[in-house]
Nucleic acid binder design. Structure first.
Lengths: 216, 216, 216, 216
DNA sequence: AATGAATGAGCATTCATTCAT
DNA sequence: TATGAATGAATGCTCATTCAT
């Protein structure tokens, strides 16, 4: 676990306790959003005292900031793996889709937290952390596309920036559709109750959709 | 304005005052979400007393319900116009995109409210209203696509349900990207600061993206 | 109906409407007590506007005062009938008990109101009205007893004041036991569920109890 | 003090503070009844914060329930002492009257609370606690009387249930007459201003009244 | 260092009273 | 004269934050 962004006092405690606090906080913030999240409940669910929470974090805002940082770091790890792989455009897209499907299931709360983040207006600090991640992703996708254009894999005359944006939109909503109640219900309305047992169908069709948009 | 879903007491007041209350409520709920929205603030911003608010609505929940109903009705009006028009697949998509661009600008708070709705869990009544709208939209898109398949305009072997879902995902995030702070910033990261002065570019590229995905 | 204690504006309205207002107010005050009684509800149940209520009464306190006055006047009428009758000690007691049994059933709310009055502390004006009635009753009972002592009907060496007090205590609680939920349940605990179908048994035993206490 | 019915958090605080809270609550509820009682005022008068009150009790209802439980327990203690004593019918009655006179003076607010309880309608839980006590008392009195009948001390042909009821009525109103403003004033009307300096006179006459009713 | 009891400002809701129509 | 919409102070309850132990 990356400890850089934690206060001395939060770094010094046992890995186990730190995980309990982070998990509890992620769950609470993702479930209720910043304003409605309850610090006393976070402490209780984590099995530590409120007093300790205020030793680890300056206040609610700071706690949220730390949690977001932690979430972004977790996501970066996943993204890096995909970036590393040296593949074709299609191969990369497929990998991302599969990664989203598996990540959304194992990190439901982090995804919900991301959705929460898009609604409330937060401090500049929070925005800084998240925009940093968005920039990384954006840059990565745009490069992929430009590279693919150069290699003659995808249409030359499409705008890489906007197409990267549209593609990420599809990814973001796919992610939410596997994690957030509202979007899950919405997906069921479109495709049917059993859609969550058909990951391959969804992945396959999304591949076709994106390939159709990009490929010659 | 559709008055059907309003309590007698809210119907009887002047159009002007009703608008002030609705606007204030939509803004508050869209900004803070249900739980953190402040009724006293809604009253103050609308220029009426709290007491009056509680004459117009049974309670916070009922007020939210009314607001959501109102938002959905407003959206339905826009959708209906598009549905009416008897056009080609391409023509319809273009109309929808243009409508989103203009609707998102004139109804910023309604769109933000929609985004808020996706995070908190709400009463069955709220979900009923919204799922009703999602179902309508879903059904409409799926029909468009099936019809277009029959006419030989779009690929025969794509799954209409999933493609409708992906297409709506693009529309939903486009809408958010024109209204919600977070998504607006994200769009700027992808495309640049001046993206909001280039509606035609965005619309044009999204058309290309979707046409590529669907057309033969 | 005695109109003396009503404001000009309350006197001028139709007998029918005045009765509706009085009934509604008696019911409300007897059910909820002074503080929790709701003027708007009184108006609604009476079928008049709040505005009118405030034409008929200066404020909540004044309304309560009027109601209590009205209740006391109603009770006085009943008491007078009994006083008039020229009978033996026993005959009078029996008449009173029967009167309580029938009065409590037809004027449930007035009796409940009386019980309510004993809990909250009210203005001097209210107390003046009620103490006036208590004095009348007390005086009446004490005279009865003295008279009966002189006639040699009851024990000479008992204290007429205290015995009058004890006797009235029995009457008061009998009254409550036929009207107020709590006391009704309590009576059922003592005597059984079917006690309210056995007025004669109750009356008979109470006669015996009192006669035993007083008679030689 | 019996702590069984208190929440952990209310049991853990100092005896002194607990007493302050109980006293303040008993006084408030007995003065204003459940609905009009003011939690903020209870907290202030007890010298604790509202927040603390809500740590000790779940809500107003729970607080009231606890208070009633506490009041009933206090009363039970007094009753038990009398029950224990193995005496003649007369001896027991005298003891009860004396106990009422002393209890009413030391526990004015508990008695007022009892009177308040008879006006408002309360939850089943509250009624359960109180009816339990009424049943105990009723059973006790009825046994006393039956026992006395068997021993040939009191009239054989009186109904033990109804006579127990009438006797308790005398006790209840005696209790109120020593504690509740209204009934105190009423007693003064009957007997005179100095009645509260003549406990023995009152007790003596009440003994005579009851003995006359019961004894052969 | 860790605890968790205590604080009190803040918010949803009610209701006596007013006053424009 | 009668109406009832409007007002806003008051109250039950929550929760971020502090601090004595």
């Amino acid at each position: 676990m990356k400890l850089d962004n934690f206060k001395e006092s939060f770094r010094k405690i046992s890995e186990e306790k730190r995980k309990a606090v982070l998990d509890s906080a992620v769950q609470e913030f993702s479930e209720y959003g910043f304003t409605s999240a309850n610090i006393n409940r976070i402490a209780e669910n984590a099995g530590v005292s409120v007093g300790s929470i205020y030793k680890y974090f300056d206040n609610k805002e700071d706690m949220f900031l730390t949690i977001v940082h932690f979430a972004v770091d977790t996501l970066k790890t996943v993204l890096n793996e995909i970036i590393q792989s040296d593949e074709t455009f299609e191969g990369r897209i497929e990998k991302i889709i599969k990664a989203i499907q598996s990540y959304s299931r194992t990190n439901v709360y982090l995804t919900k937290l991301y959705n929460e983040m898009t609604t409330e207006s937060h401090s500049n600090l929070v925005w800084k952390i998240v925009s940093d991640m968005e920039s990384t992703t954006a840059g990565m996708y745009i490069s992929f596309i430009r590279e693919a254009q150069e290699k003659g894999w995808v249409k030359k005359d499409l705008d890489p920036k906007l197409f990267a944006f549209f593609m990420d939109n599809l990814f973001v909503l796919l992610q939410f559709s596997y994690s957030c109640e509202y979007y899950k219900e919405r997906l069921k309305i479109y495709v049917g109750e059993d859609v969550f047992d058909n990951d391959d169908l969804v992945a396959g069709q999304l591949m076709r959709f994106i390939k159709g948009a990009f490929l010659l």
